[in-house]
Design a protein around this nucleic acid. Structure first.
Lengths: 113, 113
DNA sequence: TTACATACTATAGTTTCTTAGGTATTGAAA
DNA sequence: TTTCAATACCTAAGAAACTATAGTATGTAA
């Protein structure tokens, strides 16, 4: 009675992170929050309380690697995808897309009769 | 740092229920699981452990009303939208759609350079 | 009579996210 | 010069949603 696709729903934050890193190559946490806000015209806002734990989890799972650098007197922690991270990005993005298609099918239903 | 749109993410099951009831008028729990499975060609499968608590919650919130009927010796609990439920359906569906658009924007990003 | 489909309910446990803090630096405004 | 916003990271308590699992019960087909 379970479906892997649904699992993606809850994990869409991690997919967002993975996809951004795939496209941008290397980003730090704060940058991710700002980019998501900018890309979605303020529609999607990542809270730090959700983002940082998610980044740490992805790192612990071996999908991301982190390097700390000091820029303009402030420490930044740059994240990038590992090889596994890249593979996971591809499959999770595709899973999320198919979930969204299913969801769209339901949202676009017309009343019966 | 919060966004109402994100709240929708976790609540997409309830939006699915609401939308189906809006279109079909009146459904019982088991029927909902079967319809979702059929509509999405097996892609989306609702677990009973997720569905029934969600139905009860929507009923408690006043978005649904329930009537029990015995059909073929089996009790069925038919749910339908209240007036508030209908209004909520409209707004939640539109919120979910705009969330999905934002998500799609990110998923469709092309690598920089 | 066994097994599957129908039909509902309850609950322990996990994961994810929100809320709400905390630390610290830089730079602009007052 | 002090204060506030922006930058940049972190954590922890609690809420909420979902999974997994189990239980109850009837009808029907093998």
């Amino acid at each position: 009675m379970t479906n892997a696709t649904q699992h993606v729903l809850k994990g869409s934050l991690s997919v967002i992170i993975l996809k951004l890193l795939e496209d941008r190559g290397r980003m730090y946490g704060y940058e991710i929050t700002q980019q998501v806000k900018a890309i979605t015209a303020g529609e999607l806002v990542l809270t730090e309380g959700a983002l940082y734990p998610s980044l740490h989890k992805l790192e612990a799972e071996g999908l991301l690697t982190a390097e700390t650098e000091v820029v303009d007197g402030r420490a930044r922690k740059y994240y990038s995808l590992t090889k596994t991270g890249h593979q996971q990005t591809v499959s999770r993005v595709s899973e999320l897309r198919s979930f969204m298609e299913s969801l769209n099918t339901i949202l676009n239903l017309k009343p019966a009769i």
